[in-house]
């Protein structure tokens, strides 16, 4: 029982710690963002969890295309759905943050637009899966699209914002990177928060996969 559970408990403890510590530690007093800098612990961790989920999904899509085992497809699609969930949370927390620092829920920032379009690509993936009835065919075709979608994610969130002339995000458009300028005490909360959300993302993925396996009658041990 405890043997398979430790990482789930660790994830929960880390998140609980990051919520309490994130609200109570001293943060550097900076102009414009002031206390909203605490949102870094919650907003950026969402994107970390999303990236890890979508990366997992890419790995399992490639694995499916090289072995055609349906359980790999369950992992790939489950990871995409979990990734969409965290991406949506990332957008929402980001919008709240934007409202209080930049004055608007949405700004014409390359990072925001990139995130929105990548989310659209993954929603298209979900629609593509819904439109094909036969399980093996659905798995194969959505795996192919998933690889394209990950390429888009890398272009939109990794390449284009860095090439842009200006951006409100750190590390993009000529701004200095977040990680270099991050306060040491904030790191003590931020890294555990990111790790905790990633662990919980894997937990969600596991539940999703088991549920789909039961519904579709896929043998996970094969």
């Amino acid at each position: 029982m405890i043997k398979g559970m430790w990482w789930k408990i660790a994830g929960l403890v880390l998140i609980l710690y990051s919520i309490i510590a994130g609200l109570t530690i001293d943060v550097p007093a900076l102009p414009v963002i002031h206390q909203t800098i605490r949102n870094l612990f919650y907003h950026v961790s969402m994107w970390f969890a999303m990236f890890v989920m979508l990366g997992t999904s890419l790995v399992f899509s490639i694995k499916y295309l090289s072995g055609f085992k349906l359980k790999d497809d369950l992992m790939a699609s489950g990871a995409v759905y979990t990734g969409i969930f965290f991406g949506t949370l990332g957008l929402l927390t980001g919008m709240i943050w934007a409202k209080f620092t930049w004055g608007d829920f949405w700004t014409n920032d390359p990072q925001l637009n990139g995130a929105a379009v990548s989310m659209m690509a993954y929603l298209a993936y979900a629609i593509l899966r819904g439109s094909i009835d036969e399980a093996a065919m659905r798995a194969r075709i959505s795996a192919v699209y998933n690889i394209f979608a990950f390429m888009l994610l890398v272009i939109f969130l990794g390449v284009l914002p860095r090439l842009a002339d200006s951006s409100l995000h750190p590390g993009k458009g000529g701004n200095s990177s977040t990680m270099e300028g991050l306060d040491p005490t904030m790191r003590l909360v931020f890294y555990p928060a990111a790790l905790g959300w990633i662990l919980v993302a894997f937990w969600l993925l596991q539940i999703h996969k088991r549920k789909r396996a039961l519904i579709q009658g896929v043998n996970l041990n094969k």
Partner: peptide, 22 residues
């Protein structure tokens, strides 16, 4: 990709738009 699934015209637009956007 779209030709291998059911409703083509709509799916083509949904799948294609993010891909050509960059």
């Amino acid at each position: 990709i779209a030709s291998r699934s059911g409703n083509n015209a709509a799916l083509m637009a949904i799948l294609g738009f993010p891909v050509v956007l960059p």
